[in-house]
Design a binder for these strands. Structure first.
Length: 744
DNA sequence: CTAGGGTTAG
């Protein structure tokens, strides 16, 4: 045996093996996870994970399966055997299929080629590839249908390299691929974005005269559109001998996937003119397009159409409707749809409702729906946990986060990429780097997303050195960084004044990792230079960008001008930003306050007037107050809070009292954030906050004694409901106070 | 008779 113990064979290795006229694939009898050997060399590795849906088979056994299932073997007939196996394949009932397999062996139908193929298909579709391969090897002879089942099984289980290997097998044995085989392989190419291989298959299809087969044509169409070649897909579509509803759906979905929603909807109309009726697939795509376009009217129209056709309660269409309404903030309609779906609702439908609340920053409502979902015994999946953890981060609530974490552990989702990284993110946002660290180290295998989350956690919680060290470790571990990785390390450098490191990283991004910088990276570099006071360098950087600078690229430089008192440059930058985004309230606030501090009161007032005339100050979640020619802006994640007159009065009172006490509320900071956590207001922006940074105070946050007493003072004047937690950590720490940035 | 093509969400 070779030493390839834990890695799947690559198609390259396998292809060369198959080139040498392979005879037979074999399977290990001792290790159920090994799929097989060719001429004594292992070619693949399967994980036997087909048991995940077994909980469903008990129900299905008692309700939906033909009676013969329970009858003695002698009562089985060939027809129903095949029917039941097809049923198991479609529903993913592995356990039921296994039991049925036993009956089949007893009855003697096991030797039947068609029954054998159905069995292979059942195991493959249920995810038990080990058994599928074992059966293939025991079949008296292989035919194209059984091979297709095997290849299709690989493809459905994400084993694309293995699918290719088995496809190559056709060259070595007497049977050849047929049109079924090509459709399967085209789907594999689509998933791998393997356009070259796809084109080769296209050529073979033409040569073999399968091109007139509708399914093959549709598979080609999908392959091209998945690979991003929409022009080829469209011309292929136009040239199709026969366009059925699947062809139309495929091309419409292609344009939807590439975010050309208008074109997608235009084609939807053309389709009806062509006399083809849209079905549930087409409607799902159309509704999802409306959701992405944020077009409530057209979406409602589609909703009406599916209602009329009686398709509105199906899992996919129904869920898309929930998603459509909740994504547009129409939570009422979303909830109504979910309720109407009743038992037809799947976990996806619930997830869509939760996601809508999370995206619209209504974390509490999201958690309520989650509680409802649990109460309804709906199984939570990776999406549910990932979404609900995002809700925890925006609250932010450590307690809720811990509760969800325990559910995640119980449901065995910690190792899932999305759930794991959301967990790290959530602990990060709740201020507990220690917990984030624990999740990260306990994950059996870390994926790049989790590495990114952990680096970001260090970076955002005042551990820039740790962030960079972890980045180094990641590179040494051979993990390819992504653009988010660089965002995290660049911001770590920027917040800790490591200008040179930051610049080096930015350069290596393109040079060593071939990652094209985006707007956010440029913005980070501008921030890096600006914070360090290198205003001219930052300006040069922007001027020399290969693309036209956008408002988000200019903004950090304006903030830097404010910090470093460069009014002249601030005026120039302000002009640039307003040209790109005339409604940016920050610009007026910043300029006005800078003029006030420079004693240019007329100029200051001019800015405030402009701001009022343009009515730009009314950002959601933000209110502002003018005291002594200065503007203070208050942010709160709770819209109703920042917009309520009572709160407005309260805030005004606070600022006045603060000023009366001789404090200058944020000499360099015009934004004051008001956060709530678990019904407590936990923080205020304070003196000398770096621009753009809003403070959050959590129980484990490191606050220096000065700020602590200031925060305590604030808490006494704000409101009775607003109480600060008294368990800050008070010891010497190496990184700065999260409030004022001072070192203690 | 057995195998194939199009749908939801981080």
């Amino acid at each position: 045996m070779t030493s390839m113990a834990n890695e799947p064979a690559t198609s390259k290795v396998v292809c060369t093996l198959f080139d040498k006229n392979p005879r037979r694939i074999g399977v290990s009898t001792t290790d159920p996870n090994f799929i097989g050997y060719v001429n004594g060399v292992k070619i693949g590795y399967f994980t036997n994970n087909g048991t995940s849906r077994d909980d469903r088979s008990d129900n299905l056994c008692t309700h939906n399966v033909p009676v013969t299932c329970y009858s003695s073997a002698s009562l089985l007939d060939r027809r129903s055997v095949i029917d039941v196996l097809r049923f198991c394949s479609n529903e993913g009932c592995l356990e039921l299929g296994r039991r049925y397999h036993g009956l089949i062996i007893k009855s003697g139908f096991g030797v039947d080629q068609f029954v054998g193929t159905s069995l292979v298909d059942m195991y493959a579709k249920c995810g038990d590839m080990g058994s599928a391969v074992m059966l293939i090897n025991r079949m008296p002879y292989l035919d194209v249908a059984s091979c297709n089942c095997l290849i299709s099984g690989c493809a459905k289980n994400g084993l694309f390299d293995e699918a290719f290997s088995f496809f190559m097998m056709f060259d070595g044995i007497d049977i050849g691929p047929n049109h079924y085989t090509y459709t399967i392989m085209l789907a594999v190419c689509g998933s791998l974005l393997a356009i070259e291989e796809g084109k080769q298959l296209h050529a073979q299809i033409v040569k073999m005269q399968y091109i007139s087969d509708t399914a093959a044509g549709n598979a080609l169409l999908t392959m091209y559109s998945k690979c991003g070649m929409m022009q080829d897909a469209e011309s292929l579509f136009k040239g199709l001998v026969q366009r059925n509803v699947v062809s139309w759906t495929a091309i419409i979905n292609g344009f939807k996937q590439h975010r050309d929603f208008e074109k997608a909807l235009r084609l939807f109309c053309l389709m009806s003119e062509d006399g083809i009726d849209p079905n549930e697939y087409t409607f799902s795509i159309a509704l999802a397009s409306c959701a992405s376009m944020k077009n409530l009217d057209i979406g409602r129209m589609f909703h009406a159409q599916v209602l009329k056709k009686g398709l509105a309660l199906g899992d996919y269409v129904g869920t898309t409707i929930v998603d459509f309404y909740s994504g547009l903030g129409e939570a009422g309609d979303a909830g109504k749809q979910l309720k109407e779906m009743g038992k037809f609702a799947s976990s996806a439908s619930w997830n869509a409702h939760i996601a809508g609340f999370v995206h619209n920053e209504k974390a509490e409502e999201a958690i309520e729906v989650f509680a409802d979902m649990v109460k309804n015994d709906e199984a939570c999946d990776e999406f549910t946990y990932s979404m609900i953890l995002k809700a925890c981060s925006s609250l932010p609530s450590l307690v809720t986060c811990e509760q969800i974490h325990s559910r995640v552990i119980k449901a065995k989702f910690v190792s899932n990429m999305h759930v794991g990284s959301s967990l790290i993110d959530a602990y990060n946002k709740c201020g507990s780097v220690e917990d984030a660290e624990r999740v990260f180290t306990q994950k059996s295998s870390a994926d790049v997303v989790s590495w990114n989350s952990m680096i970001k956690a260090y970076s955002q919680n005042g551990h820039p050195t740790k962030a960079l060290a972890l980045f180094q470790k990641m590179i040494e571990g051979g993990i390819m960084p992504t653009n988010s990785t660089f965002l995290a390390v660049l911001s770590a450098c920027s917040h800790s004044g490591m200008v040179q490191e930051g610049q080096k990283l930015f350069e290596s991004m393109v040079r060593d990792y071939n990652i094209l910088p985006e707007e956010t990276h440029y913005s980070c570099v501008v921030d890096l230079l600006g914070r360090a006071g290198q205003l001219e360098n930052a300006l040069d950087f922007i001027k020399n960008l290969p693309v036209k600078p956008t408002a988000p690229v200019w903004r950090p430089l304006l903030a830097a001008c404010r910090c470093h008192n460069n009014l002249q440059m601030a005026e120039f930058i302000a002009k640039q930003i307003l040209e790109l985004d005339p409604n940016d309230a920050t610009v007026y606030v910043t300029l006005s306050n800078m003029y006030t501090e420079a004693g240019q009161y007329t100029d200051a007032e001019k800015q405030r007037k402009l701001m009022t005339v343009k009515d730009v100050a009314k950002e959601p979640g933000c209110s502002w107050i003018e005291i002594n020619n200065r503007i203070y802006r208050f942010f709160s994640h709770d819209k109703s809070c920042s917009e309520s007159p009572r709160v407005y009065q309260k805030l005004k009172q606070i600022v006045q009292q603060i000023e009366k006490r001789g404090y200058t509320l944020s000499a360099k900071e015009d934004n004051v954030a008001l956060y709530h956590s678990e019904k407590l207001a936990v923080g205020f922006g304070l003196i000398n906050l770096p621009a753009g940074k809003r403070i959050r105070v959590f129980k484990n946050l490191r606050v220096c004694p000065d700020c602590h007493s200031f925060l305590k003072y604030l808490s006494t004047i704000v409101d009775k409901e607003i109480v600060l937690r008294d368990n800050y950590r008070f010891h010497h720490f190496k990184q700065g106070c999260c409030s004022c940035g001072d070192f203690w």
